[in-house]
Nucleic acid binder design. Sequence first.
RNA 1: GGGAGAGUGUCCCGAGUGGCAAAGGGGGGGGACUGUAAAUCCCCUGCUUUACGGCUUCGUAGGUUCGAGUCCUACCUCUCCCA
Length: 414
Amino acid sequence: MTQYKSEFLNTLTERGYIHQCSDFGGLDALAAANKAVAYIGFDCTASSLHVGSLVQIMLLHWLQKTGNKPIVLMGGGTTRVGDPSGRDESRKILTLDDIEANKRGIQTVFDKFLKFGKGGTDAFMSDNAEWLTTLNYIEMLRDVGKHFSVNRMLAMDSVKMRLEREHELSFIEFNYMVLQAYDFTELARRYGCNLQMGGSDQWGNIVNGIDLGRRMGTHQLYALTSPLITLSSGAKMGKTASGAVWLNADMRSPYEYWQFWRNTEDADVGRFLKLFTILPMSEITKLEALGGAEINEAKKILANAATALLHGEAAAHEAAETARKTFEEGTSAAGLPTVVIDLSQPVGILPALVQAGLATSNGEAKRSIQGGAIKVNDVAVSDEKLTVSKSDLNSDGAIKLSMGKKKHVLIKPA
RNA sequence: GGGAGAGUGUCCCGAGUGGCAAAGGGGGGGGACUGUAAAUCCCCUGCUUUACGGCUUCGUAGGUUCGAGUCCUACCUCUCCCA
């Protein structure tokens, strides 16, 4: 198991974070001496990161935990360009204000996973807008552009795919990889960065950066990528009914986040425990051995641990308790999502469902009732003309609206 | 600039003869079975406070027609080929 000298690579290997590395030996030596300075780039296209970025965040977490220095690079500059990797549609180009707002939202998440500061292994955040926005085109062409072979760029998968699919690839997007490579060398020069990590789809871009670094005379750079995380059922990770699983609490509550992990497929539990929690491997091995219905215990531990990492122990506890009351006791729990509605007049069940966010239109609410999905205070509803009023308030002063087995909302009077 | 194609249910793919709320998938939601799992089976998946009613949908704007996703005109966007 101790295949490497460095704790960093050993941990990553046994937990399944590694897809490819440009030079295991070289990186191992660096990490063993606690001299790895690694960065991962994140977009600012939304005001929160989602579960899809969690593997990357965890990479930085372990990097720091094993005695090395993480850099979070915000793509404030590159977000204005758009990465063609893996997509065949151009990204939207955001305004500067949007980008700034998104950056602030994203920063809050990193505070949970990394220790920021000025010390040796303290993380810090950088933004490639710092150097990209002041670039001069002629100098850029002369100093950086001359190192890029268009022949090679055309051969890259991300580009090839766009060409083969007969989708347009604009020049601005074509330049994304140049900018990303340049980021790497710039971080190397400014901060002594020597490793870039990322998802496996970033391999080409990262390797380009190593190449550019060598040509521009930086120290040796390294690449490390993580596998693309998919569910056993083949679906992409992090997409659920209600859209992406956002990490920011204001976009997805701790309770919902907990539920996301609780509903993990059996086949994924072990893998996810390793990737998304910091539980010791010995404990994970035990949990992995659970079979049949017992695996639900492992799922709860996964949910607790993953939620605690992001939202803290207290929030995880509360979410677990809410879930326990709701699912195991079948009672209503105060921690469920709550919506305030004016109940001075009786409210029809249809608009109530819409306001509670359980349906997007009266029509949809009606169909749900016809499908037998709706319960008020745990009593099934068959009449779509039913109204709810103050007299339906339970002992906690709320009305529990349920759709299906998993979605519960408490309604409180205004 | 010339030529050839394409844009369909505001999640995606995709059929579509002048009678169309528009086939079929995927995805999603619900139900059954289970373990808040997977697989499987069944139902639902445009809006509208009852509706064999009304309204809104096929890139945009007009037109022909009793009636247009379907025909005509112009425009927009995208793709390919030739310059």
